[in-house]
Write a protein that binds this DNA or RNA. Structure first.
Lengths: 150, 150
DNA sequence: GCTACAATTGAAAATGATTATCATTATCAA
DNA sequence: TTGATAATGATAATCATTTTCAATTGTAGC
């Protein structure tokens, strides 16, 4: 993601907050800037630590509250990792899946295989009506493979 | 799962604890009985509430400790749900995926589509080396569809 | 069957993440 | 510019999980 993309996304998110009736504050700007501009999964504390440098008065509680609103607006998504902590990342258009680096938490969205046949089959075999699904792939990103090799 | 299957699984798990150098105690027996015999995802508190009826001295801490050992031996797996709580279920042979009822937490394993082509493709497209994956489907089981309709 | 020893236990306290409370501050429509 | 009120941060409360520790209990070896 280029610097311009990050700027655009940040501006767009702030507009969305605005038009949804929420106020745009310094605290929210700082949180939005960190999450909108990150290619990595980040948990609330990490977001706080980075954002507080840009906006020193920021409180951790406000990070939680801002993430809650961003999630409500569909701008970020909450991701479960093996260690159970909740992390966040800018969400993609439509339903996509995640490819996550287990070493640095870099995450990329991808459009998965079409799981419809599988769901139909399971529906009739097991009697389930499928409503939703999660698919996450874990591995090493290019940068981490290289530093691992070194 | 029949009553015999449940018995077998319980016996098998207790043997595994034994041969792995762990002691078989009343507390562990109670926890094993609940988890080995359940077709539903259960969190530690739920397991505790059921198991304490069979073994009144049981403490919640021991439930956590027993689940930790069962997971270490590969007998149970920890599952992440949308609400973030950790739940457990008897694990399947080999790598399988889960079909989870969002209403009653009934869960069934299934052998998923082969995701190898997808992983290979992503490997070359994005430069990731895939090590692991999660696939979970959420829906309504037959019983819940029926009681929903009523 | 006993014994001794170490693993295991449950109660209570500690921890860590998240949420609620509340007086103060800051946004933004008018 | 101003006023209603949304948002804030500090603090306390809550909840799930982990640690501590003295007492208890399996079990290997006799």
């Amino acid at each position: 993601m280029t610097k311009l993309d990050r700027q655009d996304r940040m501006t767009n998110w702030l507009e969305r907050l605005q038009t949804s009736g929420y106020r745009v504050t310094g605290s929210r700007r700082a949180v939005v800037e960190v999450v909108a501009g990150s290619a990595y999964l980040r948990n609330p504390m990490e977001i706080y630590r980075i954002a507080v440098q840009r906006y020193p008065g920021l409180g951790l509680v406000t990070v939680y509250r801002t993430l809650e609103k961003l999630e409500e607006l569909g701008l970020v998504e909450r991701v479960h990792l093996a260690d159970g902590c909740h992390s966040y990342i800018a969400s993609a258009q439509g339903h996509q899946h995640l490819l996550i680096c287990t070493r640095c938490n870099r995450a990329e969205h991808f459009s998965g295989d079409d799981l419809t046949p599988l769901m139909t089959e399971l529906g009739s075999d097991r009697g389930f009506t499928i409503q939703d699904h999660w698919l996450q792939l874990f591995g090493l990103c290019r940068a981490c493979q290289e530093s691992e090799a070194a």
